[in-house]
Amino acid sequence: MRGFQPHDGGYQAVFEPYEAKILISLGEQLQQLLADGLGGNPAADEALHRVIPNAYRDDEEAAREWRELSRRGLIERKSAFAATMTTGLRAIADGDGPAPLSVTEGEAIDWMRAIGDLRLILADRLGILVDGDEGADDPPEAGDLYRWLAWIQDDLVRALDGGR
């Protein structure tokens, strides 16, 4: 992968087909988890607690009301952020060599959000609970993915900040 650079009013990065496939797979898993959470699956609900946190920490009644009003919309928007990422990568995944991906600023922000959500879920699986936790690296690929996604997110922040 080559990081995001300003391009044509938006940004452009270069991905290998295998990188595109990994991100598509992760994005689709995230969408599935969000859909299951919306469907009331308790296991998915538990996995989503870091992605859709409690909006009222000291008022159970208000927290429940807020959930009823906002949860569906939030899940749908988060699913759309993941879709921006996976849709853009399809052609690269199907190609036979590294290829550029161009995104608008809005799409870049969708990417940041989808990658942030993936990191929250991976962190949960790795057992990262407090600052400084490295995670159990179990399975080892999960730790590598977690760090790679951090790199991409940091890269997007840099690009959106005008390459500082």
Partner: peptide, 19 residues
């Protein structure tokens, strides 16, 4: 404040509303 919190949740940050 609820709108801010919802936006923070869209960004994946842990935010809450407080009196």
């Amino acid at each position: 404040m609820e709108r801010h919190v919802e936006a923070m949740h869209e960004y994946g940050l842990w935010a809450s509303v407080e009196r």
